[in-house]
C-alpha cells in the first residue's frame, strides 16, 4: 500500500477533517436558532384537535391568545364554537347580480387575519366573458371599473365539498369535514406538505409561505381556533364559512360586505331557509360538478 499516507498522519488528518466538518455543520445550521426560538416543547407535543380533552383544549386556546399578544401585540379572544346539531351550511351566489367589485374578497382578508403584504384572501373573483363557463376565458387580474361590458363575475372560494379531495389526501388527518359540512384545518397539526393544495379543484387552499404580518390595530380580535386565528408559518389554511360567526348565528363576513346582495347563506336542513328556497326555485349551477366533489357552494341566476 505505497499510495497510502502513513497511519499516524492519516489519523490526525481524519480528526482534523472531522472537527472541521462538525464546525462547518454547526455554522451551516446557525439560522435554525431563530426558528427554534419560537418552538416550545408544549407546542411540539400538542395533540390533534380531536384528541384533546376539554381542559387541554382550553389551555391551548389560552396559549394561542398569549402567543398572539407576544408576537403581534394584540389582545384577542380565541374561542372554539362547535357545529350546531341539525345544521348543514350551504352558500349560494347570484351570478346575475354580482358586479365583481371584490368587496367580499377584501372583507375576507380583514376578517380572517390574512397576511397584509400578500393581500391574501380566500376568495378569488374571476372576470368571465359573457356566453361561456370556460374558466380558461376568465381572469382574476382585472383592474378597471366594474362591471365591464360583455363580462360577468364568478367569485370562487372553498366549496366545502361533501366529498372533499383535500380531506382524502391529507396524510395526517389535519383537515376534516365537520358535522355542519365545513371543512376545517387544525393549524397546529398540519405538517405543511401541501398535498391538499394540489388536490383541491377550486384553488381554495392557501399556504403560509411566511409568518403572516398584520399590524396590531388591524387584527380581528374575535377569533376561532379552527378558523380565523392568525395561522403559524408553514401550514395550510382555508375558508371556513366564517364558522366563528356563522356557528353563533351571524352571517359570513363576505356576505355582509356584498353591496349587491348576491350572496345567500343558510342552513340546508331548514326547509324554511332562504338558501333552500334558492336551490328549489332557481337555476342552479355547480362548478366542476363532473369531478364528483359535491360542493356546498352553488351559483344561481335570476330569470
Amino acid at each position: 500500500m505505497s499510495d497510502q499516507p502513513d497511519p499516524k498522519r492519516r489519523v490526525s488528518l481524519q480528526i482534523l477533517g472531522a472537527t472541521l466538518g462538525a464546525s462547518a455543520f454547526a455554522y451551516a445550521m446557525e439560522p435554525l436558532r431563530a426558528w427554534s426560538k419560537d418552538l416550545t416543547m408544549e407546542q411540539f407535543l400538542q395533540k390533534h384537535y380531536k384528541e384533546m380533552s376539554k381542559d387541554e383544549l382550553a389551555k391551548v386556546l389560552q396559549r394561542v391568545e398569549r402567543d398572539t399578544k407576544e408576537s403581534y401585540g394584540a389582545t384577542v379572544t380565541v374561542k372554539d364554537p362547535k357545529p350546531l346539531p341539525g345544521v348543514e351550511f350551504g352558500y349560494a351566489l347570484n351570478l346575475s347580480v354580482c358586479i365583481g367589485c371584490r368587496k367580499c374578497a377584501e372583507a375576507c382578508h380583514v376578517e380572517n387575519n390574512h397576511d397584509r403584504r400578500t393581500n391574501n384572501s380566500y376568495i378569488r373573483v374571476l372576470e368571465m366573458d359573457q356566453g361561456t363557463f370556460d374558466l380558461e376565458r376568465g381572469t382574476a387580474q382585472y383592474a378597471h371599473a366594474v362591471p365591464a361590458p360583455g363580462k360577468y363575475y364568478l367569485p370562487v372560494q372553498c366549496h366545502q365539498c361533501d366529498n372533499a379531495p383535500c380531506v382524502k389526501v391529507c396524510p395526517v388527518q389535519a383537515t376534516w369535514k365537520e358535522s355542519d359540512g365545513i371543512v376545517v384545518v387544525d393549524y397546529d397539526w398540519c405538517i405543511g406538505c401541501r398535498y391538499c393544495e394540489a388536490a383541491c379543484p377550486y384553488h381554495a387552499r392557501r399556504f403560509n409561505w411566511t409568518k403572516p404580518e398584520i399590524p396590531a390595530e388591524q387584527i380581528t380580535t374575535e377569533q376561532g381556533y379552527l378558523s380565523n386565528r392568525i395561522r403559524p408559518q408553514g401550514v395550510v389554511e382555508k375558508c371556513t364559512f366564517c364558522l366563528h360567526r356563522t356557528r353563533e348565528g351571524r352571517q359570513p363576513a363576505c356576505l355582509e360586505a356584498c353591496p349587491t346582495g348576491a350572496r345567500v347563506f343558510g342552513n340546508l336542513l331548514d326547509p324554511a331557509s332562504e338558501i333552500r328556497w334558492v336551490l328549489e326555485n332557481k337555476r342552479v349551477y355547480v362548478l366542476k360538478e363532473e369531478l364528483g366533489t359535491r360542493p356546498r357552494f352553488f351559483y344561481f341566476f335570476d330569470e
Binding site: 384528541e51 388527518q173 398540519c190 405538517i191 401541501r194 399556504f207 401550514v235
Partner: peptide
C-alpha cells in the same frame, strides 16, 4: 418540502394520526 418538519411525528403510524 414540508412546511413543518418539526411535526414529523404526526406522520408516524401509531404515534401520530396516519390517514
Amino acid at each position: 418540502d414540508m412546511g413543518r418538519p418539526d411535526r414529523f411525528w404526526h406522520i408516524i403510524p401509531g404515534i401520530g394520526r396516519f390517514n
